[in-house]
Every structure is written in structure tokens, then in C-alpha cells.
Write a protein that binds this DNA or RNA. Structure first.
Lengths: 150, 150
DNA sequence: GTCATTGCAAAGGATTTGCAGTTCC
DNA sequence: GGAACTGCAAATCCTTTGCAATGAC
């Protein structure tokens, strides 16, 4: 969703995040896409508009936005972190082939809870559900080039 | 669960995994604990019995066992991968303070499914649920040393 | 005997840190 | 004005890779 700079600035101030050109651009890029980019993806995207932007600033900014609750960090596999501008409660559907991440909005999933026995005294603050599988194009690719195991 | 070397060897053969002293030790260490150790944790654990063991062997062995389906890789956060000798379907409860991971066995969670509309043409092969919170001792520690925000 | 596995060292890639200069509040 | 942010470079950490020696089947 494309956001007006004023809206971004308002959100930053609401969350006590200092407003800078770089942060606004990073947050705008993240809000505009549904593709869950990595820090480096965002660096590449934003550098087109602001060639002076450094990779470090992207990492630092993402950590600031994450801590402020303006951005969500999604970890899939043990490779690089990916970021999500959608901080409302939702879950993910992940393609094991191409790594794309789709949002899943579902109230039943949002309501999942552990029984008190299962919780083992934990103060449970939230949960996350990931579905794994193959997207349409990766299913196709797998049919075309069968693996060693057939 | 402590396993007999013969049982480990049988499982390896059943999954076409070559039997070596190093692999047996790594798998035994993993089966014996419920703590979801990292590759390096396992390296430290196993090195006590086999000082010649190299870190590389641990990484390589874990990838072999993972591909054979004898071990499950758990990724929490974007830091190091952690390993789980329990490959039956189950989910996790993770402490945001100390990082400990507890197993959650729950048939209702195992049965979660996406509606066909939500699945967007994906061939969904599985899912994973993570509950996040603070364990008893970390709750205590947080009370004792309140954060800047109270 | 052959091929996968092991061990060592070095490379690789994502992220963090140190520090000087700059900018926002 | 002062604390927080930015940018550059170097460092750090986990993991993978190259390669010769070893060991399982």
C-alpha cells in the first residue's frame, strides 16, 4: 500500500521514531510491497532513489522500526531475515521452491492457544503459524524436472 | 531418550545413512536431550567423548541426518539453526528471554489446514506453529530488572 | 577397491560494531 | 546543543567449501 510521507511521519512520531529521509524511504518501500524483502533487497530498492544510502543504515533502521513495532521481522530457514510492513496479526504461507512468502489472514489461526498444561508456566505473548509447500510455478517446475528420486 | 548404539545403527541403515563413530555420537547426543541444541552446542557436547571431532563433521552430519529425515532443523530468529531429534509431528514453545525451546504435542495443532482460497494454489505439505513468550525464570528476571519502559 | 566421510584451513555471506561527521529535535 | 542517526570500513559470527587422508561397505 502506497503511503503518503505525512502518514509515515505521523506513524514515526506516534512510535517515537525520529524522522529522517532514509527511514521514510525504507518504510515507504516496505509498505508498498507485499513481497517480504530482505534487508539487502530493501537496500537495493531504496538506493535507486537515494544512491548515498548505506547498507548499514538499512540494517539499523530496520532494527529501530522493528523495536518500535512498525515492522515485523520474518525468519524463514536460517538464511537472511525478511521484513514485513504488515504488523497486524497474520500468518505466512511459504514456498519451499522460490522462497516467496504470502500473507494469511485467518481469525481461527489468530485465536490458537495452548492449554495451561502445555504452556508450562510460560507467559505466552503470541504465536506464529507457517504453512510450507510449493507455489503454482514451482509445482510446475518440479513436474518438468523430476528429482533423482522421481 | 537414551538410545542403544544398535538402535541408532538400525535407524541409520533403515535410512541409508552410513554408520560412523562420529555420526552415532552426534545422533545419540541429540536423541538424549530435549534442549534443541545448535550445531555448535552439539560439537561441544560430542567433543568431550571424541576430542578429534571437527566442527565441519558436525555440520555435515547434521545435514545428512536432516536430509534422511532422522533429525529436524528448527530455525528460531535469524541466528544459528537448532536441531531436534524428535521428528514426529509437533510444534514449539519458545522463550524470548533465554531462547529455550519446548516441544508441544497437540493433535489439534497438527490438524490445522488452510482453506483452498487461502492456499492460493500452493501444494501445502506441512505447517509449523510457534508460541512465543517468557518462561518462568525469565518472567522472574524481567520483574526484578524492569526495562526502561517499566 | 571405491566412494562417501572426515578433518583442517580458508572462504563465504549476512549482520554488527567502531568511529567520525551529520542531522533532527 | 546534544543525543541520535548516517555512512564507511573492518570485524564478527555461523556456515559452507576445497582438498587430502581415512574409513565404511
Amino acid at each position: 500500500m502506497k503511503l503518503h510521507p505525512q502518514e509515515i511521519e505521523a506513524r514515526f512520531r506516534r512510535h517515537a521514531v525520529r524522522v529522517t529521509r532514509q527511514r521514510t524511504a525504507i518504510y515507504a518501500a516496505l509498505a508498498e510491497t507485499t513481497s517480504h524483502p530482505s534487508a539487502d533487497d530493501l537496500y537495493q530498492m531504496v538506493k535507486r532513489q537515494q544512491p548515498m544510502m548505506s547498507r548499514n543504515t538499512v540494517y539499523y533502521t530496520l532494527s529501530v522500526l522493528r523495536d518500535a513495532g512498525l515492522v515485523r521481522e520474518v525468519n524463514v530457514g536460517h538464511d537472511m531475515a525478511r521484513y514485513d510492513g504488515n504488523v497486524s496479526m497474520h500468518h505466512h504461507l511459504i514456498c519451499l521452491g522460490c522462497g516467496q512468502i504470502m500473507d494469511v489472514m485467518d481469525d481461527d489461526l489468530n485465536r490458537l492457544q495452548l492449554s495451561s498444561g502445555q504452556a508450562r508456566g510460560f507467559d505466552v505473548l503470541g504465536h506464529r503459524v507457517e504453512f510450507h509447500g510449493y507455489c503454482v510455478s514451482c509445482r510446475q517446475a518440479r513436474r518438468d524436472v523430476p528429482s533423482r528420486r522421481g
